[in-house]
Amino acid sequence: MPPQAPTLPRQTQGLISAAVTASSPRCSLAPIRGLGLVVILLVGCGDGSPSTDQRQLMTQGQEELARYEFTRAHACFSQVRAIAPAHDVMRREASLALAVACHHWQPASAERIAEAEALYRELSDAGVGDEAVQAQLQLGRLAELRDYFGDREDLPAARARYMQVMERWPQRPEAGEACLRLAAAWAQSLQREDVLRGVAVLEGWLDTHPDEAKASIMLQYLSELHWAFLGDARQAVDALRKADARGFDGENREWMFCWRLARLSEEELHDRDLAVRYYRRIVTDYPKCGAAWEAQQEMKRLGAEPPPIRLFDPASAVKAGGKPGRETKP
């Protein structure tokens, strides 16, 4: 439904506007904009109940962030950070949100990235709450990716950050992501021993975390590493079949995993039955992918009777699954 902008006190709205202008890189008062912001924020502290204003500013900031309006979001979160008590949850939330706004500010600059890094470090070093985990993970992302022209990737630093997330917060959902990122950070060198380290990281994590929420993605990536990087079709098929057992992860890409399974099974493992099974899956489960007819032809070539493509048969789809024309997960 339509975005509902919170009604802020007039003075606060003016402050946001002034702060946005003052913190804009194009502001002619750039040299004193930091000072201006401080003055504005100090004045803002005196307006009404701080807790109500904080909540409203956080909401406003979220909405600006959701619109990718980083300048405005930055202004809102800066104010919250300035007025919230030092150990307050909202201050941590505002700090993280402010860091994200700086991290993804457009156009990106070394200054904004440095500001983001400082905020992430502050949260990570404090080690309190969800924000610390997120901050640590984001420090890894800052190190791994090029954020602005001239930026350099620092893979060893990124790996260290990811490992810290895995070690300090092994039960947190971010730890699974960190594991995935760590494996990818190893594989990036394309050196066999590094790729094998990446494989070991993923396999080790899956062994010790059987309920990992991102297990399917990990298995899909494991399959990619085994096949594309190491040329091991059997391991690739095994990993992908395990991902299939859990349900493939990747909207509209499930049929591609089936296609790969079918081709690898036939051409590399010489397992005709497995190939037929996955070609059949493409026809029955993903008839709209556009490859269903080809999957039928492959089945015929392998001597199997293909099922029909049921695509624009809404009545039967309604009766069968209640979701006409939609791919259904296994």
Binding site: L145, A184, Q188, Y221
Partner: peptide, 9 residues
């Protein structure tokens, strides 16, 4: 995340 990781950066 899946789309991103599969490219190995």
């Amino acid at each position: 995340l899946s789309n991103q990781v599969m490219t190995t950066n």
